[in-house]
Amino acid sequence: MKPLANRQRRSDLIFVFSILIPIMALFTIIRFIPIGDTIVTSFFKRDMIRPGEKFVGLDNYKYIFTDKSFGKSLLNTGFIAAFSMFFSVFFGLFLAVEVNQRQIKGLKVAQTLFFLPVIVSMVPATLMWKMLFDYNVGVINYILKALGAHAIDWINNEKIVRWPIVIISVWKEMGYNMMLFYVGLKAIPRDLYESADLDGAGRWAQFRYITVPQLKPITLFVLVVSLIKFVKVFTQAIVMTSGSQSSGNIMKTVVYYIYQQGFSLHSMGRASAASVVLLIIVFLLTWLQMHLGKEK
């Protein structure tokens, strides 16, 4: 019996590897090799316009860690990622629960509307929000002034400009999170809620003791995916703040820093070093989230 089982197992493994090889080969070419090359490049002085390179050891890392601009971009990215992740997960879950529980007319239309921002390209979406946040002609300042408040320079003020980016990011992603949570909610057996009803549990108790634990795998997935997305924030920051007085420095994110070092300042070594740091940060945060998820 044993040799037969072994033969079957070997056959299964061959089958699995044979169907995995093409995708693994593709993944190696478009992912692993560039990542490896980035790590190697981070130890060299290299640019795109002049041939040749020079081994500089950890100099590129020393440079970025002493560069105030990199510190600022880390802070901006951390702020945007943390708040965007929190609010997009919160609102995504809230909408999913509401859509799942309420039997109202036009539910499908509402779901579609909530999901619509996900399929809109980030550039036009940000341009639309930029108009809404415009100091002089934006609807948001118009409302503020109508309420007797001062108009706010949302885009050019360093202390404020992060919030419009968070709002755009949340608006864009919460529909996607809602759909994931909605699928998770549909998978929760109804009899759990029925039993809870019989035991006299209220809506909040049902949510806390049934919905939240049952959604844990989905929640973990949503958190990890959202975090990775928001740590890579770039387009909304650059489009929102593009213009004479605000682009770049005020809203510099880590990805913008990488882009600037590589393409504007021609230092692929430093851009690669910053990319490696970003990779490590994303990896650590993902590991931490998964670890915490497992513990609970």
Binding site: H150, N156, E158, G243, S244, Q245, S246, S247, G248, N249, I250
Partner: peptide, 23 residues
């Protein structure tokens, strides 16, 4: 200035940030 002392109309618009090379 506004009543709270903040600037309502600046006397000279100074370039204090933004696109770095422009600054």
């Amino acid at each position: 200035r506004n009543a709270d002392g903040s600037i309502a109309v600046s006397g000279f618009s100074m370039r204090l940030g933004g696109n770095p090379s422009g600054t």
